[in-house]
Design a protein around this nucleic acid. Sequence first.
DNA 1: TTATATGCAAACAATTTGCATCCTG
DNA 2: CAGGATGCAAATTGTTTGCATATAA
Lengths: 148, 148
Amino acid sequence: MKALVEQVEGILKFRGKRLTKQRRLIIETLKNLQGHFDVQDLHRRVEEADHRISLSTVYRTVNLLKELGFLRALDIGEGYTLYEVVPEFEHHHLVCIRCGRIVEFHCEHCEAIHRRLAENYGFEIVSSQVVLQGYCPKCREELNTEAL
Amino acid sequence: MKALVEQVEGILKFRGKRLTKQRRLIIETLKNLQGHFDVQDLHRRVEEADHRISLSTVYRTVNLLKELGFLRALDIGEGYTLYEVVPEFEHHHLVCIRCGRIVEFHCEHCEAIHRRLAENYGFEIVSSQVVLQGYCPKCREELNTEAL
DNA sequence: TTATATGCAAACAATTTGCATCCTG
DNA sequence: CAGGATGCAAATTGTTTGCATATAA
């Protein structure tokens, strides 16, 4: 499997776009940044390597990578957007509505069901997201203790 | 089944909150407003009945109703939040990434799977969301015709 | 060389908040 | 009456954009 940077480079060129040093740096950072992040997180990390990279460039690059299909928005946020590198294997999220903890899970059953469902409606599915919202074990315990 | 207003009224009182005429109006409007809406939509509708109700009051009330569990955020949006009245029976969404069309579907299989999954992780699920993103039948056809 | 990218600051849009006033309980 | 709720306008915040300048191809 080719490095992310090279994959992106190919597609960029194909579209008449350029691989600038800022974009290269952002992509490299992305590789080491696993899990979920928002644009400001990413900007902070990128700044560690080169503090002259502007926030708008990071925004622009994230949007570009989203269009190119390398990143996707999670839509779990509270007023801001979380992103993740599009994973090789689909996975979903358990979100604690009290402490915000996010647990990822994989579910083959879900995939199969989604595919069948989409077919019924004539949709061609590009990606699927399952978000289960509730209380994580820790918060459940704390809620019991506090007896709110 | 009691009217929504009465349900909310009970809980409000219980929490030392008040049922003002603005809140009552918003809740009544909500009843006749099915499907998905954002806060500005709701405000527009509420204004039809009383144009002196401020946008901030609508925002505050929506947040309140969300906390109380009568509304929930859909997190499908593009820069703004969509809400829906928490439905008696869970349902999910097919979203067309080209034209934005949203189709609701119900899926008992999904429910069962989610419950089992959550159990495995010790989560107590309050609500679940499935968002399948792709191309709706109409857009699929148009894309084929245009031969982009 | 030349169109694409960047950095900066200003613009935006959705949402929140401070405060004087109003009104429900 | 007293404390919660409202309306208004100002403030915040995440994100986008215009423009002069820098740079990849």
